[in-house]
Every structure is written in structure tokens, then in C-alpha cells.
Design a protein around this nucleic acid. Sequence first.
DNA 1: TGAATATATGAACATATGTTCATGTATTAC
DNA 2: GTAATACATGAACATATGTTCATATATTCA
Lengths: 135, 135
Amino acid sequence: MLVVVTERRTRHRGERASEAETIHRDRIEPARASILDSGDADQLARRFKVLSDAGRLRIIYALLEVGEMRVGDIAAAVGSSESATSHQLRQLRDGGLVRSRKVGRSVNYRVADTHVRLLLDVAIEHYLHDHGTAP
Amino acid sequence: MLVVVTERRTRHRGERASEAETIHRDRIEPARASILDSGDADQLARRFKVLSDAGRLRIIYALLEVGEMRVGDIAAAVGSSESATSHQLRQLRDGGLVRSRKVGRSVNYRVADTHVRLLLDVAIEHYLHDHGTAP
DNA sequence: TGAATATATGAACATATGTTCATGTATTAC
DNA sequence: GTAATACATGAACATATGTTCATATATTCA
């Protein structure tokens, strides 16, 4: 759900008490409207948050390469403990980035869909673009 | 710089001391190679981390709509303090997502390039795809 | 059945993160 | 010049996050 901002202007503590406060309502309004239109920023942020850990990214790349792996093999591949890896996998799963299926007494994980790779590719491309490194 | 993992298998504390440890080296190696090829996971994670905060996303969307805004107007648009907004803008700037230029005694910020919007669009598309909501 | 294996999970702990508050630095206005 | 404005910045603080460790839950094997 979106939280609609209705106040005219929130005075925050620590700001010097002045009456000048040049409010450019004409500049602010379209921006505010865009925020509402853009969908819930919190949900989008949550999505990026899952990708904002190097360990989780390593897991995703490992899975993208191999296709499907058990938790233990993933842990070995990324050089982390099985417990930490399990915790990370849960976040990836909750975020809809990977899926799992039980095989015997182990659990195999795989990347959920092609959008994940696309998102990573765009992010890397952006980085390369910024730093002038050859793609 | 990439840190190449060379150990055979790191035993982590808390794991039951067993000698079974079925190591599927053939499955792990290609994954590890992929991680190395994919570039530094830490740097990519840092990039996503900048986008993993709702406040920063709101700032970006505000700037995408208006084009260029002063710090004070951005703060008003997203409903945050000027100090907090300034801190956020610094991260966005360090991450190469926005750029600034001084105008009089204020500072105008704008989104750095078109890759930013693309990245956001792909992320949103992915989310919609996952949740079956109509795009 | 009981032991071993594979993974999941929760509490504790250390570290990271974002906001606030106070202050610093430019720049404009008077 | 001094005052006011606009933004930046650093320390302090509360909260979030990721790892470890100890268990819990399946599942296979003997």
C-alpha cells in the first residue's frame, strides 16, 4: 500500500527555525505525483536489498552457471558455511529469485527465471558504462 | 580486485565433524569460475545497496520526473529532512546514480544517465512478472 | 529401529545502516 | 562588513543485517 503524503511541509527537528522557507510547490508537486505513480518504493527497495549482498550474488551466479545445486554444494562453491548459505537462500527464495525442490534428503536450488539474469546484466552494464571499462 | 578462492574446502565451526563430506568438485568448479568471470560480486552488491533504500528510490523517481532539483525541494518532495536527504544524495552520487551542479547557493541534482531508469524498469518488470500483476 | 546425512531455524552477537542533531562552509542579501 | 540561506558533514544513537552456534526436522542407510 502506498502512503500518500498530505502535509504541506514537515518541519524537521534540527532545522533552523526560519520563516523564509522558499517552497517551490510547482517543482515539488510533479515529483510527488511521480513517486505515487512509480509504485511502492518500499517493495522495490526490498527487491534490491536481496541483491545487495555479495554472498547472495555469488550464490545466484553459481546457480546461473550450474543450473541447479544442493545447499551443501552451493556453500562449497561460494566458500561459506552451510548455515549461512541456508539463511541466504531463504532470503533469495522469499524474494522470488530462486526456487527449490527436494531431492532425496537434500534440497536443490535454481534461479527462478530469466529476469534475474537480465537484471544482473543491466546492473553490470551500467557499472561498466560508468567506469569506462570495456564490456 | 577479485579474491581467488583456493582452499579445497573450508570447514566451518559448528558443522558436525564428519568425514563423509561428499564433495562434488565437478559441480562446484564451473560455478566458481563463473563467479570469477562475472566480476567482483562486492562491487555489484555495493551498486544494488544504493538502490535498496526506499528513501533513495523516492529521490531518484522525483528527479526522473522533474529532471533537476535543489536539495531542499527534493527533501520536500520525498517528505524527509534536508540533512537526511543530503546524506542520501551523497550515496547516490558516490554510486554514480545522480550528478550535481551548483546553482547560486543551492545545489541541483539530476539522475546521471538513462541506465538508471532502465535498471529500475527491469526491476519493476521482474516484480510484476513474479506477482502476476498487470503491467 | 537407530545412526548418519542434509537442510532449516532461532537466539546471540558483531557490524552496517539511516536518521537526527549540532556544527561547518559557501554564497547571497542587507 | 554581518546576517541569512543552502547544503554538507560528523558524532551519536537506534535499528537492521549477516554470521555463528546450537538444535530441530526430515530422510536415507544399515
